[in-house]
Design a protein around this nucleic acid. Structure first.
Lengths: 211, 211, 211, 211
DNA sequence: GATGAATGAGGGTTCATTCAT
DNA sequence: GATGAATGAACCCTCATTCAT
């Protein structure tokens, strides 16, 4: 399966150049959004001529795809590494899963990617599909597996396996969106958010009724 | 305090006209995003001439603000109504709070607003500030109050008052984002999501250790 | 049959505007060729803004078509008027036919049209087809009819009806091409050319062998 | 007088290379026209790198000149060979002259040259001048000589020497233009056209009035 | 000499905004 | 007030030309 968007047959220096452009584009997209970004600015940021961008990307759309793929692909690995382990209790695994999500989403370039996805995704089916299949679905599935295993092992309450995994992914998502919109107005401590989240979903708010 | 964006001195028919334009703009922004939307299309959707849009809104930015304000304002009321009650247990109030958020965000036009906020907010400080002050901060504060009251009344565990309120707002946010991006790929049952969310945060996943 | 390229529902002033643009485009196309022409220059020649051109023509191709149609359509009428007459001898009719061709091609804007057709036609099937069906085929048919009638009536030699009509259209074509390429190097007297042509094809060069 | 465009001091392999480029350019110009042709495509057709084209031709204009010269030069010889003979009757010589023109124009690469001349000539005086001096003027002169000789020898009617030679060159020109524009819509039998042409101009259409 | 990556001027097209009617 | 034709700045993309390797 030739993954689309992975260019073949580029020399080392060309690969480097391609990465430079992607990095520059990420910067500009982050600053101006996709539609607002000018290829001129991307080129200037990458310190190359405008035309050169077009040697590496067919058009602006392809550049967007290139950026998203470049950032998302490593995240895929992280999700899979976190998910593929059977080691540890369900509690450990769920904790790790949530923490990886918080890490990935709340910090670094996924912030820009999510912004781009939300702004452009609705008009770009292929991108949505790619993102869903590669990141979201595996993530949800991994959470669902934790829940099922935890219920089976008696760690979690009966019925836990039926909880929508999106419940657990909500706060990490909140971390990104908050970073996109409100970080200057009210900075969010992402690590604390994730810890609170894990603690809450594990033990709940309610005091167990006394016997 | 003259709220910006609230036009004064419009006749009834003019107010109606203004609302028509906002409704049309919402439709078009939802379809094409803000940058992708053409004033032509908004006018056509509102069944008026292009120039008329400019009689009611100074420019495209102002139209964006108009749309966001028009949708957000009723939501403010809802948040405040849900928050201002002291009636009921903390559990009831938190449940109601989350349910209102899920309702507001997961259904109806807030989907488009959030998309617009995420896409345009970073370039539009005033909008972000407005949204934060009017919706997000009150919402977070209301949740924090529930938590504090619940801890004080002994309904919630000690330390509950210190939990970041964003934990509770995460899943409702997930509902919107999912609707924006993945609803055709994997429809999400928002009511079930909210129920799962409430149940989980109240009682946790973990079985209480037997005495 | 709605002739393509004939715009409907334009007001008088719009029709005027459209004609101005076509006239300007003809001037610029004549000076620079189609590919070499800049929409900027067309607009400047028409004394309007660049964007206005696009209110009347979808794109540069459509402008080319507009120009060609606008010039060709009157020529169609001329060809048909010359052809539809049954009056006069075959000699008269052929003479008139050739003279109309010389007139049409050798003088006025058909020079530019032919140049555009030759330069762009090979890449623009629709244009070629239009030109062939509307101008060339009727013209050839009209000549063929003259020849057949002349042979039938005994004016022309037996076998005249089988002569390729292109023989008679060649010199008028020469008139245009000469005007396009060599008029400054060696001006051509088109009227004389047509007269020589008619005289030659009617009576030939060769002295009839004496009896 | 160093004929412009005839490069000196090229090795055998360089001359070969130059010819390859010209051949490739002819192919591409024929397909896309001059303005529409991309140097990239010419290079690809010649199976060399783009930069190499510029080792043999200063720029795209020079390539155009190179192509035209390369095709036109052999045609010059043909015209001169056909014209320089004093052998045979005037009828034979005129017949040969027309037949050579039909051959040269109606078949082979002169089709592309004429298209290029018509499209680019008006913007390229040097090219027009070259073409006129080398091909057109000698051709016209040769025809005029035939006519004069034929009149002098009594083969042709009195006054024949005064007929514009363009009359005789018209149908061969028609052959090229037809090939450029209409050959797929209505193929033209060039040999028959030339035969009809010769027969018509020699003996005319009109039956000689009986005595 | 040959290469082809890089350059950047140029031009077609779009669309927010204006303004005469 | 309403209209929609007109404007022209902005921007994506192409491609002739250059030049370091």
């Amino acid at each position: 399966m030739a993954a689309p968007g992975i260019p073949q047959g580029l020399s080392r220096s060309q690969r480097r150049r391609r990465e430079d452009i992607i990095e520059a584009a990420l910067t500009i997209f982050d600053r101006d959004g996709f539609e607002g970004a000018r290829i001129d600015d991307v080129a200037a940021e990458a310190e190359i001529a405008k035309g050169t961008v077009y040697l590496y990307f067919k058009n602006k759309q392809a550049l967007l795809e290139g950026v998203i793929h470049a950032i998302v692909r490593p995240a895929i690995d992280a999700v899979e590494r976190a998910a593929d382990t059977k080691e540890g209790t369900a509690v450990d695994r769920l904790t790790r899963q949530i923490s990886v999500m918080g890490e990935r989403l709340g910090k670094g370039p996924m912030k820009t990617i999510l912004r781009l996805m939300i702004a452009e995704g609705p008009r770009h089916d292929q991108l949505r599909y790619f993102y869903y299949k590669e990141i979201v679905e595996p993530g949800m599935r991994a959470i669902a597996r934790c829940l099922a295993d935890g219920e089976a092992s008696g760690e979690f309450r009966p019925g836990s396996a039926d909880i929508a995994p999106q419940v657990f992914a909500g706060p990490p998502l909140m971390a990104v969106v908050w970073r996109i919109l409100f970080d200057d107005l009210a900075p969010l401590d992402i690590d604390r958010l994730m810890k609170d989240h894990v603690a809450t979903v594990l033990d709940g708010l309610r005091l167990p009724a006394e016997v």
